[in-house]
Structures are given as structure tokens and as C-alpha cells.
């Protein structure tokens, strides 16, 4: 068994912390884990991807096109950028958040419409999650990444460790409760979604 996970978002959205918590959990569960991310210009509003692979034995730390079992897009249009990496029959979780890139802000190009409809037409398994709204309602939009983590952990059925406790250990102490609630909200959202389907 080998699973490939691609996280894609915009610098500052917390993809790196998300992947840190996820990999810590995977290590605790006894998997071989590799994670790859490209630093550099990410703080300057560029697109950020993190790739996580786990299983019995993992060699390459990065995922090729058509190889990701699941993509989590932290920003709506980034889902389109990540799409070529999705395996046939794979799942894509999309945060509703829109962050305009500069050419859109200056009016040079338009932000694409109907992203979700397009993804649903192309890919069977699309889960649209308002992680930013859920996090805002819980107290701070910055916890959107942990809402997405909750949904991802539910999707991967990673039972056997106390994820909530792990989240609590790995976020700043004053944000512990908020992030634990965010994790539970994302987790429950995914479970409710699959129960419906």
C-alpha cells in the first residue's frame, strides 16, 4: 500500500503546518513517510505545493502527474493547477477560498468562473469545503488549514491515534482549542458528506 497526497495553496495559507501535523501522525502510525516541498518564493504570494507519500517503503519524495490519490486545494483556482497530478479515480478536496493573483487584481486577466462545476464535470470525486467560512465562524480564518486537515484525515481513514491531541501539541498553545475544533469540524464534514453519498 502506498498513498500519495498533494497539498496545493498560496503562500501563507498554512500548507506547511498542515503537512507537518499530517506527517507526524503518519510516523506515529508506523508508516514510512516522505514529504517534499519547494521553498524559496513561497512567502511572496506564489503557489505552494507540498507532497506527502506514505506506505511500507517509500523511495521518491515527490509525486508525478497522474499519481496523487488525493489533492487538497487550499485555494479554489489552485485546484485547477493541481489537477494534472490526480490519479484516475482520485479525490479532490477544494476550499472555497479565492485569493486573487496579481494579474487578476490589476484586471489584466479574469479569475476563472465555475471552477467547481468544471472540476465536477472532469473528476468524479470532488468535495467542496467552505473551510475558510467554518474557520471564521470558529474564531479565526487562519484555522482553515486545520479544517482541511480534518477532512483529509477522515478521507484517509487514519484511525489509531488521537489526532486532536496531536493537533493541540503542534499548534501555538493559545490557538489549541480553536484548531482542535477546526479539525473536528473538517473531520465531521467529510464523514457527513460520505454518509450522504
Amino acid at each position: 500500500m502506498r498513498k500519495n497526497i498533494l497539498l496545493i495553496g498560496v503562500g501563507g495559507q498554512g500548507t506547511i503546518l498542515t503537512s507537518k501535523i499530517l506527517t507526524a501522525g503518519l510516523v506515529e502510525l508506523g508508516f514510512d513517510v516522505k514529504m517534499s516541498e519547494i521553498h524559496g518564493m513561497s512567502q511572496r504570494g506564489g503557489s505552494v505545493t507540498t507532497q506527502i507519500r506514505y506506505g511500507e517503503k517509500i523511495y521518491s519524495p515527490n509525486i508525478g502527474e497522474g499519481e496523487a490519490d488525493i489533492i487538497v486545494a487550499f485555494e479554489r483556482s489552485e485546484a485547477l493547477r493541481g489537477l494534472p497530478f490526480l490519479k484516475q479515480g482520485g479525490t479532490i478536496i477544494v476550499n472555497e477560498r479565492e485569493i486573487y493573483p496579481l494579474p487578476v487584481m490589476t484586471g489584466a486577466i479574469a479569475y476563472p468562473d465555475n471552477i467547481i462545476e468544471n472540476l465536477q464535470k472532469t473528476v468524479g470525486n470532488v468535495l467542496f469545503l467552505e473551510a475558510d467560512r467554518i474557520a471564521t465562524e470558529l474564531g479565526n480564518i487562519r484555522a482553515q488549514n486545520i479544517v482541511l486537515l480534518g477532512a483529509l484525515v477522515a478521507f484517509l481513514s487514519l484511525d489509531g491515534i488521537d489526532w486532536s491531541e496531536l493537533v493541540g501539541e503542534m499548534v501555538p498553545p493559545r490557538a489549541k482549542e480553536l484548531n482542535q475544533k477546526a479539525f473536528a469540524a473538517g473531520f465531521d464534514f467529510y464523514r457527513a458528506h460520505t454518509a450522504k453519498a
Partner: peptide, 20 residues
């Protein structure tokens, strides 16, 4: 063979790094 790849009708807008 290469793995099959999904293609959407619309593509992501370019997201160049910018001065903060």
C-alpha cells in the same frame, strides 16, 4: 505508459510571486 491525466476546460490563472 504514462499515467492518464485529467484535463479541465479552464486553467489556473498564473500566480507569479510579488512584492509583499
Amino acid at each position: 505508459p504514462d499515467p492518464e491525466v485529467y484535463k479541465s476546460e479552464i486553467s489556473a490563472p498564473p500566480r507569479p510571486p510579488v512584492l509583499c
